[in-house]
Nucleic acid binder design. Sequence first.
DNA 1: CTTCCGAGGTAGACACTGTCTACTCGAACG
DNA 2: CGTTCGAGTAGACAGTGTCTACCTCGGAAG
Lengths: 194, 194
Amino acid sequence: MSELRQKILDASVELVAEKGVRGVSFREVARRAGVSHQAPYHHFGNYQGILEAIGREGFAGLAAAINEASAAAGPDAMQALTAGGVAYIRFARDHIGHFRVMFQRDLVEIHGSDESMPEAEEAFGTLVRMCGEAQAAGYGLSLSAEDMTLLTWSTVHGFANLLIEGVLEERKFTDAQADGLTLRLAGALSRVLA
Amino acid sequence: MSELRQKILDASVELVAEKGVRGVSFREVARRAGVSHQAPYHHFGNYQGILEAIGREGFAGLAAAINEASAAAGPDAMQALTAGGVAYIRFARDHIGHFRVMFQRDLVEIHGSDESMPEAEEAFGTLVRMCGEAQAAGYGLSLSAEDMTLLTWSTVHGFANLLIEGVLEERKFTDAQADGLTLRLAGALSRVLA
DNA sequence: CTTCCGAGGTAGACACTGTCTACTCGAACG
DNA sequence: CGTTCGAGTAGACAGTGTCTACCTCGGAAG
């Protein structure tokens, strides 16, 4: 992994977080990395290549964050699921640049016609597994396994979106406020599934 | 409301749905509408203006769809809420072009520093009201009113996002399959809140 | 009737973008 | 030594958003 490649990637993610996807310019990225306007092209092929690389890096990070959080939560399946959900939302908040790119099919093809993205599959697989284990522990028994997964995933993903796009409130959240909201939501979901 | 203005708006929405936000070009829109490359500029001021107009139109349509569906659902508050949620998701699926633009803060400012967008406030307000009424009817009593709203909104919004961005499945959904999933999700949520 | 003006439209020019092609340079390797 | 190849540079091209300047025409003002 070339050093310049990572530098370009970092600059791109930073730009997405700052100005949104539209604000990312191949040449601006090159300028920030202090190279010619063709250097990024050499590493990523084209614009789409940069976005895809951001997507891969993002999904790998998301999978790691979920796994780590749920592992640290201890043996209780519902606590592990909650921790995973909180990690999902926190990842979105801490990596807006990645998150914005990851879930837009016109930017990144998760289930591409040629081949799917394994980083994404891993993140999603972990989520499915955690839901299954929570259900084996007696939660959400009124639902089918698939519906339980769909319900929790949608909730977590939707909240992450509403949060980072600033839909929920006029004023911006401080990190502490967002954490509070996240925990309240996780609490609500787990209470409702109990 | 000029006729050309609406024509330009329609062409833009169509382009977003086809190629994503990145695929929309001021000049391509003008070409599709059969006018000079400066005609759209005259109506919308700048690129941002078109996106904002799409956002307004979208939120107005969303509010109308939710209201209509919940009104048609009859007196039961939970059925009304379910109908509203289904309408939310169906709107996203039927108006991908609008929906993609509406919830990206770098494209449309819902809570702008100058003034907020009343169409969005109306849609959100309806959602909040429906949740309140469902709770008054005895659903989700283990939650605070705000948490109940947050939970259902996040779920519906997240599912809509996952659905239209094609995250959920390798194969694309037919409309009938998507409807089935939507109803299953609504059922799961209402069962879990009962 | 003339004059003015503003809404709605046009064309041209500018800097900027993504991408194509062609070039350089140094290291690896036979 | 010659060759190849990865990594980088520079120049050119069409396409983009936007600025400025023009045209046109229906009314209102005088």
